[in-house]
Design a protein around this nucleic acid. Structure first.
Lengths: 157, 157
DNA sequence: CGCATAACCGACCGCTTCAGTAGGATTTGA
DNA sequence: TCAAATCCTACTGAAGCGGTCGGTTATGCG
């Protein structure tokens, strides 16, 4: 598996917040119930999202979480990275200060290790997919399928 | 990390075999030395590659491993999949009998879970990168950088 | 004020995988 | 026969995953 359930649960959590009308905060409890996920585990995940500045929280009664930005401005690379940590295909891959991708096997100069070409392409494919998807898209996507369900029930009745 | 060192080491191993002149078998020991990797660990990896039909082996003295097919016909999705197992972005993702990708959260009908769109795109990006890269490309890539090194040393002397 | 409701925080736990080691059995060329 | 090699199984320490639990703090409401 490329990603663990942390990404899965976390994305579902974000979508649920995105579905919330207005900017009303949703309690973790309600999210956990809606998505059928363990509340105490979600607490860990939402903490990461908060530290990454993707959600804001209000404490106390009737408190909860809401998106820190409009869903259109939240791309999924930020969400997944907040949950899973730096996204790289391989351990020896990290962003250098100049933003370039370097393999730790190329100690100095322009010497390239044999796998670099491959991981560069994989990295590109993944980040393109993640950065090219906004939370708003996922919210709309899930709304559509919900409407389908309602329509099906309606026509059956 | 998307992949473990199993993929890294395994790909390097395959490249090393691809660099071998003729169809001469290379012993694991020589590969381990060339790539500076633990021999006893490579044994596990090469076993997976052999079971996947990517390399063939000849036992006994002067034995070793060679590619089962020309490097041009070996795509990296097969290699990585042999080493890491089925490549899917998420646990709930598996190929259905008809080849379609299904999420186990959509129990029946056309109900889609909110994350499906995202993982579909990620899956597409990764498989496109892996299936679109042949072992021959990586061999050529590593040969080029080796030539660069030789040239650099030559000009320095 | 007091209480319920929530966010917060850290410790712990069983399980699986990772990365590697160890030891031996088997096959084969010289 | 011996050395070199593949092959196979079992084991291990460390780390991450997927939670659980208990407790603390903040806040709205009656």
């Amino acid at each position: 598996m490329l990603f663990s359930t942390k990404a899965e649960y976390g994305v579902r959590l974000m979508v649920e917040l995105g579905r919330q009308p207005g900017s009303q905060p949703a309690s973790l409890g309600s999210v956990a119930e809606a998505e059928n996920l363990p509340l105490s585990y979600l607490e860990h995940l939402v903490a990461k999202l908060r530290k990454a500045g993707l959600v804001t929280s209000t404490r106390g009664a009737h408190g909860g979480y809401r998106l820190a930005k409009p869903a259109e401005e939240i791309t999924m690379d930020a969400v997944v990275e907040a949950l899973e940590g730096q996204i790289a295909p391989m351990e020896c891959f990290h962003d250098s200060p100049e933003g370039k991708v370097l393999c730790s096997h190329e100690s100095d100069g322009d010497q390239a290790c044999s796998t670099k070409l491959l991981w560069m392409r994989v990295q590109g494919g993944v980040t393109k997919a993640l950065a090219g998807t906004t939370l708003a898209e996922l919210v709309e996507f899930s709304d559509q399928s919900a409407q389908k369900r309602v329509a099906a029930i309606g026509s059956a009745a």
